[in-house]
Write a protein that binds this DNA or RNA. Structure first.
Lengths: 153, 153
DNA sequence: GGTTGACCTCGACCTAAGTCGAAGTTGTTT
DNA sequence: AAACAACTTCGACTTAGGTCGAGGTCAACC
């Protein structure tokens, strides 16, 4: 029916993608997306930016940081429009990431389960608390526990 | 053997709990822990602060915010030292929280799995992208998608 | 009783992922 | 050609969860 426009304004991209225009500029600043400019310095986006944005937002949902996303996007070919299989490859990486996160949470839950009965949460003996550090002996000179690290790569 | 000290200095608490002294002051400011003061205005902690800290750190690992933790701690009795069953009750709540998180991630993964084959990630059709919003019709006037919401309660 | 290390407060700074507002420019529509 | 919506940049601000340093005090040991 109607001709698809060649290029989209930032407002159109915001509307179609659901990503606020402020975030679009922010993503551009971070090198996640790119735009061309009109002679009057306004941004114009090719339609495929929408797919890129879909990737970004979904990746965030999966729990990746924008930096992670940036790195993933950097593996896309520069010289051509990414194909389905390019996107599939990246998505497959999420799967790994997600599986790992799910597993970590499950392990945590299982430890918690074994703790609930005793109400322990002791710094000395609770396995939940000492996830990756067994040397929490009490007494002087006990080395510091590692600070809690968030799950992630 | 050796007598346990009545009260601990901030340094001792930091060492035994693995929580940096800066964080201890921060937690106190946030009302998560409390201390008494010496005549010279230095903090002194009763030993049971260690258990409270264990709770806090573990809760963070589970993914709760300090505010969540604060609210949970607020349900502990003021008038007596919390018992095992007090802690058990709180821990049981984490379990629910954790289960929910695991479930959300699993749903996400399953959607992702069904998407990987097609590499779609389309704003229009990808179920991954449209987790809670089906009206992503293209064309002018399409209402905005909801901004991505993080999985949570 | 002096030295030294542990402690105090306060304000500035940090990252992540943006948002908001001001002041000025462009693009579109009538 | 004037109005007005949409766009531009820039810097300040936000929340969460802290860290860092300065300048000053306290406590413990020899």
């Amino acid at each position: 029916m109607s001709k698809l426009p060649e290029m989209l304004t930032i407002g159109q991209v915001a509307e179609r993608s659901g990503v606020p225009h402020t975030a679009l500029r922010f993503y551009e600043e971070r090198g996640l997306i790119a735009s061309e400019r009109t002679t009057g310095n306004q941004r114009r986006y090719p339609r495929h930016v929408l797919r890129r944005l879909a990737f970004i937002r979904t990746a965030q949902r999966v729990g990746l940081s924008l930096e992670d996303v940036h790195d993933a996007l950097a593996t896309l070919p520069d010289n051509r429009t990414p194909t389905k299989s390019d996107w599939s490859r990246l998505s497959a990486n999420w799967q790994v990431e997600l599986d790992a996160r799910i597993d970590a949470l499950r392990r945590l839950r299982d430890r918690l389960t074994s703790c609930i009965g005793c109400g322990c949460l002791s710094l000395r003996s609770c396995s939940l608390h000492n996830l990756d550090d067994e040397q929490a002996v009490d007494g002087p000179g006990a080395p510091k526990l590692k600070p809690a690290v968030e799950g992630g790569t």
